[in-house]
Design a protein around this nucleic acid. Structure first.
Lengths: 190, 190
DNA sequence: ACCTGAACACCGTTCAAGT
DNA sequence: ACCTGAACACCGTTCAAGT
């Protein structure tokens, strides 16, 4: 469990990110939290953006990692629906990490791109299982996956920026929209 | 058509935003483009964030404005589907304005909140029309609207950040996802 | 009412220098 | 291989002063 200096820097940066967003992640503050000078990060990351990318890829890898179940070992894979609900909950719980992770790059940073692809592959597999069970409509699994991902992502993003519901009345929860979509898709797949 | 100093500042800021994002919008550069000092904007906007909010609300108002039709006067209202396609196209055409407009605030800035509400009201009305025609499933119009908005928003945002499709192969277009959703919803509404 | 110039605190990045 | 301190260019914001 030895934590490297690099990991400590990412930890500190993520903490600053959570409150205050990317602007609050200053190399001086990161260095101060770890106990090094504000130039030390340059020995571990190319620049500030590279440090932010490291947070994003770590977040992506954690999300892809199997969560420990409280009811002992569970060998069954999570359903597409469970994955999407998990995605939305993670976004609402860690807004800044969510925005950062899906904010830019991915195609620029190799590590980030790989993490994103592996995360999606997992979802595609779950979609195919659901299709076979008749819970999701047939058709290109990649495209159905994109549909699910787009809805969950948009619901979370709009909810975070306050654009989802109207003036207070009729508050719409992003999880409700995920449930609605799965309901419609099940009806459409018969 | 007299353009006020305030409008000129918004124009210049929007142009800087389009290339380079919010970080490229510096008060010094804005002032230079208009021909004033870098402090002049403070007489028209509280701070930089207020200037960015002005760009967002102008964009929101423009999107809500009826587009001139090339085939003369058309008194019919745009369909929900047309509105969503228009939304996605606008996002793909002006990524930075899209990200800025739906990035934060809205509930903080009164002008922005009003523009957003009026924009959504228009979409809710179109949704109700489609529901009556049997093209969209029955149920709370606000909630169905949120579903459409979430998908269009998520599809555009993921496409812009490169998270929509896998490694080049099987490129998924955000407009395709909007079309897919309307297809599924029509099937589910019968 | 609107604008200017100087100044302040802060930031990312570079670089010479240390171990 | 990793770190430090000084320095540079740049930025948002404030303020006294002008018209």
């Amino acid at each position: 469990m030895a934590e490297t200096r690099r990991d400590s820097l990412i930890d500190a940066a993520a903490q600053l990110l959570d409150r205050g967003g990317p602007a609050a992640v200053t190399l001086r503050e990161v260095g101060r939290a770890v106990g090094v000078s504000h130039n030390a990060p340059y020995k571990h990351f190319a620049d500030k953006d590279d440090l932010l990318a490291a947070i994003a890829s770590r977040e992506l890898r954690r999300q892809a990692a199997p969560r420990p179940t409280t009811t002992g070992d569970d060998l069954s894979q999570p359903t597409a629906r469970a994955l999407m609900i998990g995605y939305v909950r993670w976004a609402m719980r860690h807004p800044e990490r969510f925005k950062l992770t899906f904010g830019r790059w991915t195609r620029e940073n190799a590590e980030l791109a790989e993490a994103a692809d592996s995360s999606r592959s997992r979802l595609v597999a779950a979609v195919m299982t659901a299709q076979a069970a008749g819970d999701l409509p047939a058709g290109d699994p990649e495209r159905v996956t994109a549909l699910l991902l787009a809805l969950a992502h948009g619901a979370a993003d709009l909810a975070l920026s306050g654009h989802l519901a109207a003036d207070g009345k009729g508050h719409v929860d992003p999880e409700d929209l995920v449930a609605d979509l799965f309901g419609y898709l099940k009806t459409a797949s018969r």
